[in-house]
Design a protein around this nucleic acid. Structure first.
Lengths: 134, 134
DNA sequence: CAAATCCCTACTAAACCAATAGGATTTATA
DNA sequence: TATAAATCCTATTGGTTTAGTAGGGATTTG
């Protein structure tokens, strides 16, 4: 029932970049210092975010990262899924990561977890980085 | 964002016992076979459930387990907390397991996770084993 | 006494997590 | 053109958690 620090750090980095849009490329060290994240750890996350097309980067001096999308086009769900996998509380209830478990036979129980998944999913899908910096 | 199999198995065991209330003590092997759970693994869970006063047990031949409370007095939340700890998606948002993280400064973000915690918490607190066997 | 059963602790293999290390490459600029 | 600042990329590490397995002890019933 927990988020990894990876997701939290990634969200914090995106929030920082969103707040400082228009200031060109921003370096990992700048973000790490501002948000209190271990820089080399953040580096890995930024790379992943870049590969998933949340970010654009520039190498070399004056390089760094900036958002590849508008903040209102980045739902929290997308970020969390990238680092933590499925949003659902159990496998049997996840749409994206289905796997068979004995719990499936308990329909009422499954329903409870489906409801939770739906709420969490909806909440995180409709909340974007833009909502968070307002 | 995930439940451990421990919690799932524990819930399945409680559901089984609730469905078969009034049949006296039921052995681990019976439950394990019925619900598809590794018996020696289930044994540990049953012991924990017993120590947490969800179950009563009887040793020896004809021994086994039965519920120590009425099914409607066992919220799913209690069971999940026993095996998985906090329900909240991030530490900074958990009432029972507070710990400081850099995310706290982002109030809007924290709010989203608080909302999720509240929903999940409320849902799991008010759903009991009795609801699940109906 | 034998069988069934819970009780309890220890162990293990694999995965995951958070973080660190360090070299390779690219770019701006002095 | 040398240097510094930055990303890029892979590997490694130490710790924890997870999902089980193993096995001996204690207790009760037939």
């Amino acid at each position: 029932m927990k988020l990894t620090t990876r997701s939290e750090y990634a969200l914090l980095a995106l929030v920082y970049l969103a707040r400082n849009e228009g200031e060109g490329f921003i370096s990992i060290d700048t973000i790490a210092t501002a948000q209190g994240i271990p820089p080399k750890f953040l580096e890995q996350l930024m790379l992943a975010l870049k590969r998933a097309h949340f970010l654009r980067s520039a190498k070399g001096q004056k390089g760094g990262y900036r958002l590849a999308k508008r903040p209102d086009q980045i739902p929290l769900a997308d970020v969390i899924r990238l680092f933590d996998g499925a949003l659902a509380p159990t496998e049997s209830v996840s749409e994206n990561f289905y796997e068979s478990t004995p719990i499936e036979k308990e329909k009422k129980l499954t329903k409870v977890f489906k409801d939770i998944r739906d709420y969490v999913s909806n909440k995180l899908e409709k909340t974007t980085i833009a909502d968070v910096i307002k």
